Simulated assay, not measured.
Amino acid sequence: MGEQLLDLILPRACGGCGRAGIGWCAACADALSGPPIRIRPRADPGVPCWALAPYRGAPRRAVLAAKEHRRRDLATPLGASIARGLDILRDGSRPLILVPAPSRRVAARRRGGDPVLRAASVAASWLPDCRLVRMLCMRPGVRDSVGLSSSDRQHNLRGRIMVVPDCPPTRMFPANAEVVLVDDVLTTGATVSESVRALSDARVTVRAVLVTCAA
């Protein structure tokens, strides 16, 4: 009854197509159900990069809804899609560690939390022998990347992604663990490149990058 009353006050709409009465429809789920696509960003992080879909249509609208319109409910379908992609890519005999790409603190506050972290948490909960480790953060001074050129994005982030001070010691990771960096959108590759660099400096070897969408 409470959920029905809430729908009357704030009618649900699909985060991918706007269809009324459902938060995420089957057609939009299908747009994120295919095998991951190999991508090669301009800023090469030095590890294989994969995307679940191009940054258009339902996947793009869902990512924007989660980021800019506080659609926290979309963490579940987006996280489930990430889990399916990881299940295809992973070596099932090895434990999996997911590291979400960092967000600017001001952006996370504006969005009511970090949508990448929420979706990655859902993905980790769906997969056996998998856990999420929040290892990365951004130093102060990082600007919003919207409207920046590829070189400006790289300059904006250079040296400004770091391992969080209270991060669990990496020596506690299983020796044969696969570490995958997870993000929502890959545009130039600047964020994932700096993230891989920061992890490498902390002696964490990243096996791959998986994003929801590639722009």
Rank of each mutant, 00 (worst) to 15 (best):
V192C: 12
A43F: 02
G147L: 06
R160C: 11
R12T: 10
L148T: 06
P45W: 00
P165W: 15
P169A: 15
L6Y: 10
A120C: 07
L96R: 03
A27I: 11
C14H: 03
F173K: 06
C17P: 03
A26M: 13
R38Y: 01
A214H: 11
C25Y: 12
D152M: 08
A190I: 03
A53V: 06
S149G: 15
A107C: 06
C49W: 00
V63I: 14
A53Q: 04
D44T: 05
R56D: 15
D114A: 02
R71Y: 13
V133S: 10
R158P: 08
R70H: 10
A80F: 12
A66P: 03
V47T: 07
P45N: 00
R197M: 14
F173G: 07
V164G: 14
M138Y: 08
G159W: 02
T212C: 03
L157R: 05
R104S: 06
A175M: 10
A27D: 14
A83I: 06
S103P: 00
G16S: 12
A26Q: 15
L136N: 05
D166Y: 13
D201T: 12
M138C: 15
G15L: 02
V146S: 12
G21S: 03
G21P: 05
A62H: 08
W126T: 02
G113R: 03
C213V: 08
D87F: 06
S195A: 15
L89E: 07
P168V: 11
N156H: 04
L10H: 13
L210T: 08
A202C: 14
V99A: 10
P35C: 02
V116G: 01
P36W: 01
C25M: 10
C14M: 09
L148Q: 05
P48H: 00
A75W: 04
L8P: 06
V196Y: 00
W126S: 04
A123H: 01
L5A: 14
R90S: 00
A58W: 10
L186W: 01
D152G: 07
